[in-house]
Design a protein around this nucleic acid. Structure first.
Ligand SMILES: [Zn+2]
Ligand SMILES: [Zn+2]
Ligand SMILES: [Zn+2]
Ligand SMILES: [Zn+2]
Lengths: 132, 132
DNA sequence: TTGTAAATGTTATATTATTACATAGTGTTA
DNA sequence: TAACACTATGTAATAATATAACATTTACAA
């Protein structure tokens, strides 16, 4: 059974915005968009983002400093994430590939380090951009 | 044959600093450290960093906004990078594992997107921190 | 109902990165 | 050599991203 997270007011406003967006959103663009809803300060946005990331409802695209809603309901609380990023149009998709996630979750090298989390970002040209 | 890149004065100063550092360095920490060598402005640092990343001499650790020297001479110009990051002591190492890099370089999913580059960051506790 | 954790509100500030513009060096070729 | 293109440098200003510190309020379980 998944733990149920009842989002708070600010968290819900911000999650809904990200969830509806076809593209990753940046923190200050989120701030701009929610000011009409009474969220006025960067910290209010960042706190909601932190929480949403923590509970796995959204992910941060590190190379872009931007946030997208989790497109993979079975995503294990942001512990194992993979994305594809088009370097031309900046379209980002979450990759959910069982083989890939198994391979990476079980990955171990000679360092003796046990990995509990990973984030993978693939880059290239999406179908549309490739055919231009 | 690898293309030879003769580093410019600023590039060399900044590469040497990063290369000698046991830990990833942040841009403004680099700036602070090279001011005695006549590099005074953020842009001078960022320009050198951009170039060094481009030619594969250093890599950016995206989740940390920090830079490390390439520890893998055969690294294909920053097109395929993997790192291990200790979430306790923040030690970062570049992973060079042929199987892993082959697996990821050949990865393809149903999206029809051809990936030309990837960056992978593993997180966990290093040996030292685990045994504490 | 009282204690505790989570969330909010607000101001200020820290950190990371880029724009714009002027100048200087490096190497190639006419 | 002169002309050219390209890369690198210097400097100032500013944009974009993120956190610290502090006061207050809300949710909710013991
Ligand atoms: Zn997900
Ligand atoms: Zn595209
Ligand atoms: Zn490398
Ligand atoms: Zn450690």
């Amino acid at each position: 059974m998944e733990k149920q997270h009842n989002l708070s007011k600010n968290q819900k406003i911000i999650f809904d915005l990200i969830d509806k967006s076809p593209e990753p959103l940046k923190a200050y663009s989120i701030l701009f968009n929610v000011q009409k809803k009474g969220i006025n300060a960067p910290l209010q946005v960042y706190r909601a983002l932190d929480k949403l990331v923590e509970i796995g409802k959204i992910h941060k695209i590190e190379s872009r400093n931007a946030f997208i809603a989790c497109q993979n309901s079975s995503c294990q609380i942001s512990k194992a994430t993979a994305f594809s990023i088009c370097e031309s149009c900046e379209k980002v998709s979450e990759i959910s590939n069982t083989k890939l996630s198994k391979y990476l979750s079980n990955f171990a090298d000679e360092s003796g380090m046990k990995y509990t989390k990973y984030n993978l970002e693939f880059f290239g040209l999406c179908k549309k951009c490739k055919s231009k």
